[in-house]
Amino acid sequence: MTALQFSLLPHRSVIAVGGADRVEFLQGLISNDTTKVAPGHAVWAALLTPQGRFLNDMFVADGGDDTLLLETERERAPALAKKLTLYKLRSKVTVEDRSATMEVAAVFGAGAEKLLPIEGAIAFVDPRLPGLGVRALAPVGTASALLQARGIAEASLEAYDALRLESGVPDGSRDLRIEKALLLENGFDELNGVDWKKGCYMGQELTARTKYRALVRKRLFPVSVEGALPAPGTSIHLDGQEVGELRSGSGRRALALLQTEAARGPGPLIAGGVQLIPTIPPWMRLA
């Protein structure tokens, strides 16, 4: 593991959900248990269509002052804020897109969790994998100074992305097709993105059926790329048969949605004329 570094994540931003009903409101919408959110402890979750397909991913953190902060994709934050506003009906909640006033950073390396708390920021250990470090939500333009004051060196976004890709962890709609992707094909079970004991939420029925009937036939795997990285969406073939599709990538690393048997097999897997070598990350449970 590298020494402590941080990367700014300009493609991520923040929505604030406030009001007396904020916890109950989100509890009925997203895949994780919002009652478990506490200072320094966040949950990772998804908002689904009624049919159980992916819409948005988010970290839900305690923002203080009777507010929950949703860290989510910047480009899609206004649409998510609008959707949440439509869902609130008579609930005593407020929804505010803070994309213009807050920014997001990831701190990674050995001992990142020992940084908490970080004065001037809302910070929490990444609930997906400890090795992904700490997320910090701070007023725009302040994250770099806050973290450098703690002796942490700034790294490029590509440095953090390399860690994420090697770990096999998805990054929102870069890896999950909107209104198509299933959570359990993309690691949300093992990566603590679904609470199986909470009450009902939108899209729960298909998610539960997928788990208990063992319907997962494809998974998102980390792959190494033996050549120039093909574009996201490039089809992957094994012996002339299509067995998957490339997702996000950087350099010689990428994620690929693959039939599980193809990922386990001897290969070779080919995408855009180059070979892909999949690995099964330690956290992944395969049937």
Rank of each mutant, 00 (worst) to 15 (best):
L258V: 07
D239G: 14
L238N: 04
S235W: 04
T260C: 11
Q259D: 13
G251W: 14
I236K: 08
G249C: 12
L257T: 09
L246E: 12
Q241L: 13
G249D: 11
E261N: 11
L238Y: 04
S248I: 08
L238P: 01
G273H: 03
G272S: 07
G251N: 05
S248P: 08
V274T: 11
A256G: 10
G244L: 11
I236H: 06
S235E: 15
S250I: 02
G273R: 02
E245I: 14
P266L: 05
G240V: 04
I236C: 10
A271F: 09
H237F: 10
L269C: 02
R252D: 15
S235F: 04
G265S: 15
L257G: 05
G240Q: 04
G267H: 00
G267A: 14
V274L: 05
G249A: 09
L255Y: 04
I236A: 08
R252V: 09
I270P: 02
R247C: 13
G272A: 10
R253N: 07
L258Y: 06
Q241N: 14
E242H: 00
L269N: 03
G244P: 13
L257A: 12
T260W: 10
L257Y: 06
V274I: 11
G273A: 02
L246K: 13
G251A: 08
G265W: 02
A263C: 08
A256N: 11
T260L: 11
Q259K: 14
L246H: 11
A262G: 05
A271T: 09
E261M: 07
S250E: 14
A254Q: 08
L257R: 12
Q259T: 10
L255I: 09
E242L: 01
L257M: 14
V243C: 03
A262Q: 01
I236T: 10
A262S: 14
G251T: 08
L255H: 07
D239K: 12
V274K: 03
L269S: 02
Q259W: 09
P266I: 04
A263Y: 01
E245R: 14
H237I: 00
G272F: 07
E245L: 13
Q259I: 11
Q259N: 13
S248A: 15
D239F: 01
R252T: 14
S235T: 14
A263V: 03
S235R: 15
R247K: 15
G249L: 10
R253M: 09
G273Q: 07
E242R: 15
R264H: 03
G272K: 07
L246Q: 12
L238H: 13
A256Q: 09
A254L: 08
R253L: 15
R253K: 15
L257Q: 12
T260V: 15
A271I: 07
A262P: 02
S248M: 10
G272V: 06
S250Q: 14
Q241M: 13
L255Q: 13
H237A: 12
L255E: 08
P268T: 04
Q241G: 03
H237M: 01
Q259S: 10
I270V: 15
V274H: 05
G267D: 00
E261G: 06
H237N: 07
P266M: 02
R264S: 11
T260I: 15
A262T: 00
G265Q: 04
G265D: 04
G249E: 09
E261K: 13
L246F: 11
P268F: 06
A263I: 05
Q241K: 15
R247D: 07
G267P: 02
A254T: 10
G267C: 00
P268H: 06
L246I: 12
R252Q: 14
E242W: 00
G251P: 05
E261T: 12
R264W: 00
